[in-house]
């Protein structure tokens, strides 16, 4: 583990009975860094995130935050899931407040951050609506707002825009980049879309097929906002595609 690391995975291994899914995965992530994880379909990306979030226990190895064992009760870990996870019984505003209330943040901070998220994610008009009354794109923004409002030590995002069309995806990707810089949160974003990964990430961790290990870590040193048509962008995208492709 490097001294500057905010989040460190040390030898993470996961077995389901005899099936080895994750094999000794290690990496460091600096504070505020935006890292994307890509890999072949079915390589265990979601399993990997579930272990990072402590939803599932690792068979061996550890996730460290600031050098301590990660503990959702102690550390601020937020997770934006692939499936819609805005609570249907809460309004847009109540959904954004939910995580902060569970962490017992002071009321003034909750009020301030809720207003900030509603403003930044253009949800002010819909603050009193229930999730069933808003569009899929707005619902995704609610989940992003709930996650970032915590100013998490670690935010895990598992293909949160998989259901959305391309226009909304770019819109939300820009919103996520803006929020990650604003809150200083460390983000691990899992996607199967390499273009999305290159658009967002400062570093891209490429995983292998099962048993999954880290194939390579690609640094993406392009300025934001990135031009997806530039030669540098397409070169990196093609290089990562070459790492992943099995055909």
């Amino acid at each position: 583990m490097s001294e500057k690391a905010k989040v460190s995975a040390v030898g993470l291994t996961k077995k389901f009975d005899d099936l080895l899914v994750l094999d000794n995965i290690s990496f460091d992530i600096a504070k505020g860094e935006f890292v994307c994880i890509v890999g072949p379909t079915g390589c265990g990306k979601t399993t990997f995130l579930n272990i990072l979030s402590k939803i599932w226990p690792a068979t061996s190895g550890e996730l460290l935050i600031d050098g301590e064992k990660a503990d959702p009760k102690k550390h601020n870990i937020a997770f934006a899931f692939q499936e819609s996870s805005a609570f249907p019984w809460l309004t847009v505003e109540q959904n954004i407040r939910f995580g902060m209330e569970q962490k017992n943040l002071p009321k003034e901070i909750i009020n301030e951050r809720t207003e900030q998220m509603l403003e930044l994610l253009e949800l002010k008009e819909a603050r009193n609506y229930f999730p069933r009354q808003i569009s899929a794109s707005m619902e995704s923004r609610v989940v992003i707002g709930r996650s970032f409002a915590l100013h998490p030590d670690l935010l895990l995002m598992d293909e949160p825009y998989a259901q959305l069309d391309i226009e909304f995806r770019y819109h939300l990707e820009d919103a996520v980049l803006k929020l990650s810089k604003m809150t200083g949160s460390t983000v691990i974003f899992v996607t199967h879309n390499i273009e999305e990964a290159v658009y967002l990430a400062e570093r891209c961790i490429v995983l292998t097929n099962k048993p999954t290990t880290v194939k390579t870590i690609e640094k993406i040193d392009l300025p934001y906002p990135r031009d997806i048509c530039s030669k540098e962008f397409t070169d990196i995208r093609d290089r990562i595609t070459d790492y992943i492709k099995w055909w």
Binding site: K54, I55, P72, I77, A78, F79, F81, E83, Q102, K103
Partner: peptide, 18 residues
Amino acid sequence: VPEVYINVGKSLGMSHFK
């Protein structure tokens, strides 16, 4: 109750009771 809602709670460090 969809598992994803329970996982949101777990990732927030909520107790079983909560």
